[in-house]
Amino acid sequence: MRYDSYTRLINGKHPLPEGYVPKQLTDIGLPFQASSQDSRRLLEIRTAQAALRLFQSAQRDGLNLYGISGYRSYQCQKQLYGQNPYVAAPGTSEHQSGLALDVSCAEAGFALTEEFAFTSEGSWLSRNASLFGFIIRYPKGKENITGFPWEPWHIRYVTRALSNYLALTGQTLEEYYALRPF
């Protein structure tokens, strides 16, 4: 599978190369809890466009989502991993692909915690992410399959066709590809 494929499985068994950088990274102007010069505001262009539609739809429903972390380079992930071994190892983070976005809201204190799932924004995101091509990448109850704890804040762009299929079947990307990360 190509490294720039929207449906590519990225995990410990299917890492990205150290030098991989998405071709079209952009800051599309999403509300973010990061400075205007921070590379975490960047997303792959089609992902950014879908995220903008997602955020705008939430706003129309009276909710305010905020980006916390989008793109992270291999080197940035390496530094984070050195500080916190609970994050994905360098090369295995979907953030390096530019297709993943961590989101939160004021009610959750802009934190990346399970409590986000119980906010109005978190509940809305869980119900609506697939309509915009996103999945909750690490769902509750699938930890033994994904190899990651439940992360209701971590969304991944996989296209609307695949996100709707995964939402209807309840599958993770690992299950879709009939693989296990360990």
Rank of each mutant, 00 (worst) to 15 (best):
T26M: 14
T26V: 14
D27I: 09
I28H: 10
L30Q: 08
L30K: 08
F32H: 15
F32W: 13
F32Q: 07
A34I: 05
S36L: 10
Q37V: 13
D38P: 10
S39G: 01
R40V: 12
L42W: 03
L42S: 04
L42N: 06
L42P: 05
L43T: 01
E44W: 01
I45P: 04
R46N: 12
A48D: 09
A48F: 07
A48G: 08
Q49K: 13
L54T: 05
L54P: 10
S57R: 14
A58E: 12
A58I: 11
A58N: 10
Q59G: 03
Q59D: 02
R60Q: 12
R60Y: 03
D61Y: 11
D61V: 03
G62N: 11
N64F: 02
N64P: 02
L65W: 06
Y66Q: 02
Y66C: 02
G67W: 04
G67M: 02
I68E: 13
I68Q: 10
G70M: 04
G70V: 00
G70A: 03
S73I: 04
Y74L: 01
C76S: 14
Q77K: 12
K78Q: 13
K78E: 04
Q79C: 06
L80Q: 10
Y81G: 02
Y81K: 03
G82Y: 09
N84E: 09
P85L: 15
Y86K: 14
A88I: 03
P90N: 01
G91V: 02
G91T: 01
S93N: 03
E94A: 06
E94K: 07
G98W: 00
L99W: 15
L101A: 15
L101E: 11
L101D: 04
L101C: 11
D102T: 08
V103Q: 02
C105E: 15
C105Q: 06
A106C: 12
A106H: 13
E107G: 00
G109W: 03
T113I: 07
T113D: 14
T113A: 06
E114S: 10
E114C: 13
E115M: 01
E115F: 02
E115T: 08
F116V: 12
A117S: 09
A117K: 02
T119H: 09
S120I: 10
S120D: 15
G122Y: 11
S123E: 14
S123K: 13
W124M: 00
S126W: 12
S126R: 08
R127A: 07
A129E: 01
A129H: 00
A129F: 00
F132G: 03
G133V: 01
F134T: 06
F134V: 05
I135L: 03
I136F: 07
P139C: 13
P139G: 07
K140R: 14
K140I: 09
G141C: 12
K142E: 08
K142C: 12
K142G: 12
E143G: 09
N144T: 07
I145H: 11
T146A: 10
G147A: 07
G147K: 04
F148Y: 04
P149L: 08
W150E: 07
E151Y: 03
W153T: 06
W153E: 07
W153I: 12
W153A: 06
Y157G: 11
V158I: 04
T159L: 05
R160F: 00
A161T: 14
